[in-house]
Write a protein that binds this DNA or RNA. Structure first.
Length: 340
DNA sequence: TCTGGGGTCCTAGGACCC
DNA sequence: TCTGGGGTCCTAGGACCC
């Protein structure tokens, strides 16, 4: 089963401000639609009715829906709400595999999955006042796809036996994991629909997309693989901070100061969690949206923020600076051989 | 509609080694 | 002589997701 909270960020905000119920609510950035370079994280269904979508600039959202309530992104609140939901899911006799803030795959054995879904939705609502949709399937992909039909708040079932009836004539982009780029390349091979992907020549897929991706695409076309749902806590591979500035940053010393600050902050966070940094990457985006990342391996793994900051400066020095930057980011790669 | 922040995984190609 | 085949490590970049 796949559980997906409805309009998660907006729902958490409405929960603590009940007077907003039924109103268009837009969460994103610092909640000021007058600021530039901020986008919608989540819009409530009422706001979506005006055409507001995730990823849209706040100013655009304000134009489409002038009466919307704009709220700042509040990560700690969503972390807490998410944890409460996941804890509730774990009270059921199922394996819970968390997928981000507002989703989870559940491995369940039951004769009546719809009844289980009803119980899950009821208990999540009782415990957290949040609503969710539940998809039932026999693979991650079928369950996740079913959730799309269940939103908001419902239950839907899709299994591989009915996969082609439901999905066969839809475009390949309706598959979770296939985006517009892959769809374009598939079109070159004459593959447009899910059914065509399932029937596509494996050797041709492999030679076009590489051995792993090519094979995976064919599996997706058939409704997905059957890898087990696991509840082992996720061990992060990396951690990053990035920041888009209201005004471009051009002065090299200023850029360097931002990089050093972010490197120290992100290293401090992961070190506090018992993790060790092996590489540091610097990401820059010019005002023309040209984006480049460079990465360097540290002389030795470390938890020292100053050492990581120093190496981040070395990585930064490999860029040819000069153009004004709209974004600066730092990512640290974590040692996977160190048990947190 | 001038385009966030935080992630993961895969592939290609160069450097280097035997 | 200017070349084969296999392998690892490393970085850049693409693609996708929430």
């Amino acid at each position: 089963m796949h559980v997906d909270l409805d309009q998660f960020l907006a729902a958490v905000e409405v929960r603590r401000r009940p007077e907003l119920a039924g109103r268009p609510v837009i969460v994103g950035g610092d909640g000021d639609p007058g600021r530039r370079r901020q986008v919608v994280a989540t819009a409530s269904y009422e706001a979506r009715a005006f055409g507001v979508r995730s990823g849209m600039p706040l100013a655009t959202a304000a134009r489409k829906c002038p009466d919307a309530v704009f709220l700042a992104h509040d990560r700690p609140a969503y972390d807490e709400a998410s944890a409460a939901v996941m804890a509730t899911l774990r009270t059921f006799p199922v394996v819970v595999e968390v997928w981000g803030w507002d989703e989870a795959f559940l491995g369940a054995t039951t004769d009546d999955p719809e009844a289980l879904a009803t119980d899950i939705k009821a208990r999540v609502f009782d415990e957290t006042s949040l609503t969710c949709a539940v998809g039932i399937g026999d693979s991650r992909l079928t369950a996740k796809t079913a959730t799309g039909f269940a939103k908001p708040g419902g239950t839907a079932r899709l299994t591989r036996s009915r996969w082609f009836d439901v999905m066969g004539e839809r475009p390949v982009t309706s598959i979770w994991g296939i985006g517009p780029r892959t769809a374009d390349r598939l079109k070159q091979l004459g593959v447009r629909t899910v059914r065509e992907l399932a029937a596509a020549d494996l050797a041709q897929l492999r030679s076009t997309f590489g051995p792993a991706v090519g094979g995976h695409l064919k599996v997706l076309g058939r409704g997905g693989g059957d890898g087990p749902i696991v509840d082992e806590p996720w061990v992060a591979r990396s951690r990053s901070h990035e920041q888009t500035f209201e005004r471009d940053v051009a002065a090299p010393e200023e850029i360097e100061a931002h990089v050093a600050r972010m490197a120290k902050a992100v290293t401090g966070e992961v070190a506090a969690e018992g993790r060790v940094v092996t590489h540091v990457a610097v990401k820059l985006r010019t005002s023309t949206f040209f984006t480049r990342t460079k990465i360097g391996k540290l002389p030795e793994p470390t938890t020292d923020p100053d050492a990581v900051a120093a190496h981040a400066r070395v990585v930064l020095s490999r860029f040819q600076l000069g153009r004004p930057l709209r974004l600066i980011g730092v990512r640290v790669m974590l040692d996977m051989n160190v048990d947190p």
